[in-house]
Design a protein around this nucleic acid. Structure first.
Length: 347
DNA sequence: GACTCGTGGGA
DNA sequence: TTCCCAAGAGT
């Protein structure tokens, strides 16, 4: 969008490629101007987010893990509760995995929580409770990959290391007007990095991608780096994933202040060890509600029925436990079960 | 490298 | 309503 309106006369100013034949001085000048423009934009337009209150490495670490493939809006509430329960790495390390998972409930990708917990224990038991200070060492922690290691190192410790996430990759593709493979994106990101303010720069690039240089309908007229951009608003090719549609029924069996829950196998591919309402056959029982829920590649239409033990025994529920309502919140519930219990006012 | 892992919300 | 996808990592 805004191709003709925003790029008048901008061709000569677009950012030369790193391996181009242009004069090095011209290139550096353009990069310097781009850095200044983005930095100023970020200072004015960045969102106030809880993990931006300070740059404590533990807080940054937790936020980066939660934000992996997860939207800011979904993270906000979980982050607040999680940090309240585990304000520092010692608190996290001394907690049970069940408790960590319980507070992660609803966020998805539960292996992240397990690895965060494991890493916390390693840091406390072997590193004196101090997170590693550089990206290379951070990378060795479970759940910390290339992106997260550089994000923590740059934001919390000021290390001059660039990050590439989905946002940055998209911004770089448009900026240079060519699709980039991952390796190329990391090289380019490092080249553009403002080494004087690496943490701010990295966050600014991601913020730009998240709020202006979006996958669809990007706001080029509001973009601080539009004058250097070779392909403003270029459409990104995206692989499409068709989601299956399925129906299922869950039994909400309540008796004497207790709810019947079953635990998923510890070696289940998804949500291992987490608790949920038993699945049952549709027949007969009283319908409480119908809701939609998505898990990975499937959209479920879920019927929730109330039943007594008779209904339960007629169904294919696994052996479970009667859980007092006040204890439910201590268990790691699957997102679906959490949603149902909330809707029914049980937690 | 291709797959897999969860979820809620916006277009 | 349906579909796309979001601050990745591990295998």
């Amino acid at each position: 969008m805004g191709k003709s309106a925003t790029r008048t006369g901008a061709k000569a100013e677009s950012l030369p490629p790193c391996s181009g034949f242009e004069e090095k001085a011209v290139r550096l000048k353009a990069i310097g101007e781009l850095r200044a423009a983005l930095r100023e934009w970020y200072a004015q337009h960045k969102r106030e987010l809880p993990w931006r209150q300070n740059t404590d490495a533990y807080r940054v670490w937790v936020s980066e893990i939660m934000l992996q493939q997860t939207r800011v809006a979904a993270v906000l509430e979980h982050y607040r509760i999680f940090l309240n329960a585990f304000p520092n790495i010692e608190a996290l390390a001394s907690a049970s995995e069940q408790r960590v998972l319980a507070l992660w409930s609803g966020l998805g990708y539960y292996r992240r929580a397990r690895m965060l917990h494991q890493a916390g224990r390693v840091v406390v038991s072997e590193l004196g409770g101090m997170l590693p200070r550089d990206a290379e060492a951070l990378r060795k922690l479970p759940g910390v990959g290339r992106y997260t290691a550089s994000a923590i190192a740059s934001i919390a410790y000021g290390e001059s290391t660039a990050v590439v996430d989905g946002n940055v990759e998209r911004v770089l593709s448009r900026l240079d007007g060519e699709p980039r493979d991952n390796a190329s994106a990391w090289r380019r990101a490092q080249e553009l990095l403002d080494a004087r303010h690496p943490g701010e720069w990295n966050q600014a690039m991601m913020e730009l991608g998240a709020t202006v240089c979006t996958p669809r309908a990007p706001q080029c007229v509001a973009c601080p780096v539009r004058f250097w951009c070779r392909a403003p608003g270029a459409e990104m090719d995206r692989p499409r994933a068709a989601r299956k549609q399925m129906e299922m029924t869950r039994a909400l069996i309540e008796r004497a202040g207790r709810v019947y829950l079953v635990q998923r196998p510890g070696d289940a591919a998804k949500m291992a060890g987490m608790w949920e309402l038993p699945e049952c056959d549709a027949g007969g029982a009283k319908e409480l509600c119908v809701l939609r829920h998505s898990i990975t590649d499937t959209d479920y239409k879920v019927r929730v029925v109330s039943g007594g033990m008779k209904a339960l025994l007629a169904n294919r529920a696994r052996a479970g436990r009667w859980v007092p309502i006040e204890e439910i919140e201590r268990l790691p519930l699957t997102g679906l079960t959490r949603k149902i219990l909330r809707k029914q006012g049980l937690r």
